[in-house]
Simulated scan of single mutants.
Amino acid sequence: MPERRAEIHTKFASRSLQQLCKHWSHRFVVDFTPSHGEIALPLGRCVLDAEDERLVVVVSSIDPASLPRLQDVVEEHLKRFAFREALTFHWSDRRNSA
């Protein structure tokens, strides 16, 4: 399953994770805590991990052609929810070890 990973430096990592998970919990299967979230989206899966000043986002999709769109959707939403911060995403390929 192809994956893309981004590390975002933000003072509001946990808040961003929770806000995105709550936003999508009305439409999709979502499981989250203040430090970890998993979202099952139609295009694939999004996993978020919040640390002190860093949010790690991993998106994966069975269909490689859907991965760029999934990446864009997650990035757009996180940027929209950012509180007076300009979030920067540096996506990289990641192989699934499973």
Score class of each variant (00 low, 15 high):
Glu7Ile: 09
Leu78Val: 07
Val73Gly: 01
Ser66Arg: 12
Ser60Asn: 09
Gln18Arg: 12
Gln71His: 06
Arg27Val: 04
Phe32Asn: 02
Arg84Ser: 09
Gln71Phe: 03
Thr10Gln: 09
Leu55Ser: 01
Arg27Pro: 00
Glu53Phe: 12
Val58His: 04
Ser92Phe: 11
Ile39Thr: 03
Thr88Ser: 12
Leu67Val: 04
Cys46Gly: 11
Val73Asp: 14
Val58Cys: 10
Glu3Leu: 09
Leu67Gly: 11
Pro42Ser: 04
Glu3Trp: 03
Arg95Val: 08
Gln19Phe: 02
Arg27Thr: 08
His90Leu: 11
Pro34Gly: 07
Gly37Cys: 04
Leu78Asp: 00
Ala13Ile: 03
Ala50Tyr: 07
Ala82Lys: 01
Arg54Val: 10
Pro2Asp: 01
Arg80Val: 05
Asp31Ala: 13
Asp63Val: 05
Leu67Cys: 10
Leu70Tyr: 06
Phe89Tyr: 11
Asp72Asn: 11
Lys22Ile: 04
Asp93Gly: 13
Gln19Tyr: 07
Leu41Asn: 00
Glu76Phe: 13
Val59Ile: 08
Leu43Asn: 02
Ala86Cys: 07
Val58Glu: 13
Val57Glu: 04
Phe81Pro: 04
Glu7His: 11
Glu51Cys: 09
Leu87Arg: 04
Pro64Glu: 10
Pro64Leu: 01
Arg15Gly: 07
Lys79Gln: 14
Arg84Phe: 07
Ser61Arg: 06
Ala6Glu: 06
Leu87Cys: 07
Leu55Lys: 05
Ser16His: 13
Ala40Gly: 00
Glu3Asp: 00
Pro68Met: 06
Leu67Thr: 06
Leu43Phe: 04
Phe32His: 10
Ala50Asn: 09
Asp93Ala: 15
Ile8Ser: 02
Arg95Trp: 08
Phe28Asn: 03
Thr33Gln: 10
Ser60Ile: 01
Phe12Gly: 03
Gln19Asp: 12
Glu75Asp: 10
Leu87Ile: 08
Ala82Gln: 03
Leu67Met: 11
Leu48Arg: 06
Leu87Pro: 02
Arg95Cys: 00
Ser97Ala: 15
Lys22Pro: 00
Ile8Leu: 10
Ser14Arg: 00
His36Asp: 13
His26Ser: 08
Lys79Ser: 12
Leu48Pro: 06
Val57Phe: 01
Asp49Ile: 11
Glu3His: 07
Arg84Gly: 12
Ile39Lys: 00
